[in-house]
């Protein structure tokens, strides 16, 4: 992995009257429940360390109360941490003074919110231009830029509408355009699509992926929806009670969940649509079948193996053979959690 764009190091957040005194207790292994019960403090984040690669989509996932929204607000310091570091491009965000922090928020990190958080008294174009106006960009320039992004998210013709006149999906497109208009390298998305209907949500995910293909921003995306995480994430971090449970590529998480909590998450997903043949590849001899690229999804791989009445596939990378994958291994990989050997603890 190349140099991290954002590096979160040993981050703690504890809510309560004397959070600083509680860090030691948490370091000594006091759990979230015990901290609340015995000390009256709420554990928000517990020793979180994540390195986030540049120009990729990092998903942070967890159930409500797992600390994911708290975590993302530390990156632009909407929430002050109790202890730890957040380093973006080599600068510790937590050491910045007020003016530096404002500059960082204006130019380096923009945000998309779960409830859209548009300015209700401003038109669509003024909302999209908001970040640029704050920076003091002149009117001609920000109108042009805002117009460009309104077109990119497919809202041409709605420039002069007020947010209340738009549907939820359209409002979030405004939110996305507003975040993109400042041209910051870092895009923080806090459950950005969670408030939308499933079909609209899927549309928005496609829009985001299409934009990302071109823009290559570093995106930190918070969600509680595993399907969404697997669809858009290049890397996924799973949080529970404020602590990192597992961090890895979607493949790795589906293939080897770290514990029951993660297993519980992945039990109902369609693994065939996530896993690639490379994840079940071995050196097994005697397999004859179609040649498939390593990143072929199991769903497609199984189809072509069955179509050619073979017992597996030859896995290639850039046309060169790198291994084999038997049909049996493919079937085993997508079977439900309780049938596989490595997660036997899960009931």
């Amino acid at each position: 992995m190349s140099e991290a764009k954002v590096s979160i190091k040993n981050l703690y957040k504890i809510f309560g009257r004397k959070p600083a005194d509680m860090v030691a207790h948490v370091e000594n292994g006091v759990s979230k429940a015990d901290l609340l019960e015995n000390y009256g403090h709420i554990l928000g984040l517990n020793n979180v360390s994540i390195d986030i690669a540049p120009r990729a989509i990092q998903v942070v996932m967890g159930l409500s109360g797992s600390g994911k929204s708290t975590l993302i607000r530390h990156i632009n310091r909407l929430i002050e941490p109790t202890a730890g570091q957040v380093v973006v491009d080599g600068d510790d965000v937590l050491q910045m003074d007020e003016a530096q922090l404002r500059d960082f928020r204006r130019k380096k990190a923009s945000m998309v919110f779960q409830k859209f958080a548009l300015l209700p008294h401003r038109s669509v174009i003024d909302n999209v231009a908001y970040g640029l106006k704050i920076q003091g960009v002149d009117a001609g320039q920000y109108t042009k830029t805002a117009q460009h992004w309104i077109e990119r998210v497919g809202l041409s013709g709605f420039e002069n509408n007020f947010p209340a006149q738009l549907s939820g999906g359209m409002q979030q497109r405004v939110g996305l355009a507003r975040a993109l208009a400042t041209d910051s390298e870092l895009l923080l998305m806090d459950e950005a699509f969670s408030a939308l209907d499933p079909l609209i949500r899927s549309d928005m995910q496609d829009i985001l992926l299409a934009l990302q293909d071109e823009l290559h921003k570093t995106i930190i995306f918070i969600t509680h929806d595993l399907d969404e995480a697997l669809k858009i994430g290049d890397n996924i971090t799973i949080l529970r009670d404020g602590a990192v449970v597992q961090n890895g590529r979607p493949q790795d998480i589906v293939m080897s969940p770290a514990d029951d909590y993660v297993t519980d998450f992945i039990k109902d997903i369609n693994k065939a649509r996530v896993l690639q043949v490379s994840s079940v590849m071995g050196k097994e001899q005697g397999i004859k079948g179609p040649s498939l690229e390593a990143n072929t999804l199991l769903e497609d791989a199984m189809q072509s193996v069955i179509d050619s009445k073979a017992n597996g596939a030859v896995v290639t990378k850039n046309g060169k053979k790198v291994g084999t994958a038997s049909l049996a291994a493919m079937v085993k990989a997508i079977a439900r959690a309780e049938k596989t050997g490595d997660t036997e603890t899960y009931r």
């Binding site: 928020r105 990190a109 923009s110 919110f113 958080a117 548009l118 209700p120 704050i134 920076q135």
Partner: peptide, 18 residues
């Protein structure tokens, strides 16, 4: 005033006057 909207203004780097 909606806290979410205030948070958004904050996140985009608005100062006190803005």
């Amino acid at each position: 005033v909606d806290r979410d909207v205030m948070e958004a203004a904050e996140a985009f780097g608005a100062d006190y006057r803005q």
